[in-house]
Nucleic acid binder design. Structure first.
Length: 583
RNA sequence: GCCGAGGUAGCUCAACGGUAGAGCAACAGUUUUGUAAACUGUAGGUUGUGGGUUCGAAACCCAUCCUCGGCUCCA
């Protein structure tokens, strides 16, 4: 069934291309594959597609579908294929054919329409039963920004109309948990035009969420033997020249600023600072491994079209750490980092994540520092950890950092895009650049190995991901407001204020809602703001010195002792638990 | 950065060449409420910004900034 769907999606892309060429003769074809939810085709056309064209194309496609035209496969020699596509002006197809290995080439005809294609296809166009064109976007030919930009038309297609509608419905539901939308609704953060693109303002509730995350990760670091360090946001450009960032990373850096005729650079990474701390003493093998951690705020110049909510910003804080160790220690250190990352996935309840091993592109050594031998050794070391832990992973060539290979963990956002969180990176560039040393047990100087790692990745991105993951319904320990006390009348204000004060003293984030609104309105507001627990106080509660608890689900628990409630709440918080999450 | 679509009140949107409006939120008053929105009123905008066209511009043109969907790139 899955294969059939893939085939019919691919056939749809042919039908769309045929429709477009009939509507706008002279349109050249790029590529047109089936994708996860449908299909697309890239066109080079003098006609600039506008959204209204989608309806026109759809109508034309429906005609083609009605005509039940056959998909006919033909084989021919490479030379004949080149001649055929040249005669039709299909320059992109000619380029594709030329890249194919010598031998027989297959093409598919649908009436007059011809496409280079290895198939398979459905038998005839009449077998298509549903599709919907969704949007137009630009896409570089062969994904290369130096090549022409083609116009890509996307379409959706599923087994049947119900499945298509279900998909559209699901996307609409997913959009409701978009962190940018929830960020405004729950008053967590804003990104303001005066401040600048990609620069985040955390409002009090977002600030509290971040504080909880920071406390948690600092604790986890300390438990695992990390030291905490702090470093400045700028440093002399000289530092970045030593590290190589000024050469290999300059495209991603803000322009230097001049102070007292010296150039200073806003930091895009924290590594050089931690290295300078390492260099502040002569180190012994007995000192290693040294693990320096910092919530380091970095600034990167991101091109204007790529910033995206909290996911891709220009100023962000990494839960960064650098581990300096001997070659013998490196395997265990990488493994510990990897398990740390898995611990995060578990604590926050992520089940849908993927592990990637990012290695260099050996055809482009000029983009990297280090020798071939370095790279192969390091990649083998990372691979060994993944294999030993029996983790499924994929290898991505050319996605390594310029200074070394890495293990990345990615999670999927509300609408299916995947974002990198944890990263564990090998570095054989910086120890050499900064001439790092330690004294071995033989009394000789040796070069330490350096590992960069971030577990959340960046706190901003991580916050964005958990906002979507929990759809704003944070587990108790993360909820910016944990308890809202709702008064029934003004007579209960005094008792309620005392309750709030008592909870605050116990370390619970409680607020009062004593507006002159009806109880229903206060409950609604607390619900919309996704507060985990509400306490309702009327004359009965105040007289008996008790509380009525209302859970997020709507369940009520009457006649509770305040002290008991505080105790249970504190236990739930301390457990960092997702157990009570759905109650 | 590139292709395309957009920026109107705090939020969601309307008006689309002829006096900028609505709902929610905010604020004030009234109401004192028992489980998902009380009532009345008030205030809030050089329509992103800067130019231009026009008797007249939120609307048309140019530039620029920002946002969104992709591409490319990344934590």
């Amino acid at each position: 069934m899955e294969n059939n769907l893939h085939t019919s999606r691919h056939s749809l892309s042919h039908i769309m291309a045929k429709a477009v060429q009939e509507l706008w003769p002279g349109t050249k074809l790029g590529i047109g594959p089936a994708i996860d939810n449908g299909f697309y085709y890239d066109f080079d056309s003098e006609h600039k597609f506008v959204p209204e064209d989608l309806k026109t194309i759809e109508a034309k496609m429906k005609e083609i579908i009605k005509s039940r035209e056959k998909f006919v496969c033909e084989s021919m020699s490479k030379d004949d294929a080149i001649k055929l596509f040249e005669s039709r002006g299909e320059v992109y197809k000619v380029e594709l054919v030329k890249e194919l290995e010598d031998g027989t080439i297959s093409i598919y005809r649908t009436g007059e329409f011809i496409d280079l294609c290895k198939g398979p296809h459905i038998e005839h166009t009449g077998l298509i039963n549903n599709f919907k064109l969704t949007h137009i976007a630009g896409a570089y030919w062969k994904g290369d920004e130096k090549r022409p930009m083609l116009q890509r038309v996307y379409g959706l297609s599923f087994e049947n109309k119900d499945a298509l509608n279900a998909y559209i419905k699901q996307q609409e539901e997913a959009a409701k948990r978009d962190h940018r939308k929830l960020g405004t609704e729950l008053d967590l953060f804003s990104i303001n035009e005066n401040v600048g693109p990609g620069l985040v303002l955390l409002h009090p509730k977002g600030g509290m969420l971040r504080k909880e995350l920071e406390d948690w990760i600092k604790n986890e670091n300390i438990k695992r033997g990390y030291d905490m360090v702090y470093s400045p946001h700028v440093a002399r450009l000289h530092l970045w020249q030593i590290s190589g960032h000024a050469n290999f990373y300059s495209e991603n850096m803000f322009q230097p600023i001049e102070v007292d005729e010296q150039k200073y650079q806003l930091k895009p990474m924290n590594c050089p600072f931690h290295i300078e701390i390492y260099r502040s003493h002569l180190r012994s093998y007995r000192d290693l491994p040294l693990r320096y951690s910092e919530l380091g705020t970095v600034y990167r110049y991101e091109r204007s079209g790529v910033v995206h909510g909290l996911f891709r910003v220009r100023g962000f804080t990494q839960d960064d750490a650098h581990i300096f160790c001997t070659p013998e220690q490196v395997g265990k250190e990488v493994e510990d980092c990897f398990n740390f990352a898995l611990h995060i996935m578990k604590t926050f309840g992520f089940k849908n994540y993927s592990v990637e091993l990012s290695v260099w592109d050996e055809n482009k050594p000029e983009n990297y520092t280090g020798t071939k031998e370095d790279w192969e050794k390091a990649q083998a070391a990372l691979e060994a950890v993944l294999n030993a832990n029996k983790v499924p992973y994929t290898v991505h060539a050319g996605e390594a950092a310029f200074y070394g290979p890495k293990i990345d963990i990615k999670v999927v956002d509300a609408i299916g895009r995947s974002w990198q969180l944890s990263t564990i990176q090998f570095d054989f560039n910086l120890p050499g650049k900064f001439d790092l040393e330690y004294v071995g047990n033989d009394g000789k100087r040796a070069r330490p190995i350096m590992i960069h790692r971030a577990m959340f990745g960046s706190i901003e991105r991580f916050m964005g991901v958990i906002i979507e993951h929990f759809a704003g319904l944070f587990p108790l320990w993360l909820a910016p407001v944990q308890v809202k006390v709702l008064t029934l009348t003004d007579n209960e204000i005094e008792y309620s204020k005392a309750l709030v004060a008592k909870m605050k003293m116990a370390g619970i984030r409680a607020e009062i809602d004593c507006r002159s609104e009806k109880l229903g309105a206060k409950i609604r507001e607390a619900h919309v703001q996704k507060v985990p627990y509400s306490i309702i106080v009327g004359s009965k509660e105040a007289a008996e010195n008790k509380i009525t608890l209302r859970l997020r689900s709507g369940t009520n628990m009457e006649g509770l002792e305040v002290d008991d409630f505080i105790k249970t709440l504190k236990e739930e918080v301390a457990a960092f638990s997702l157990e009570n999450y759905y109650k």
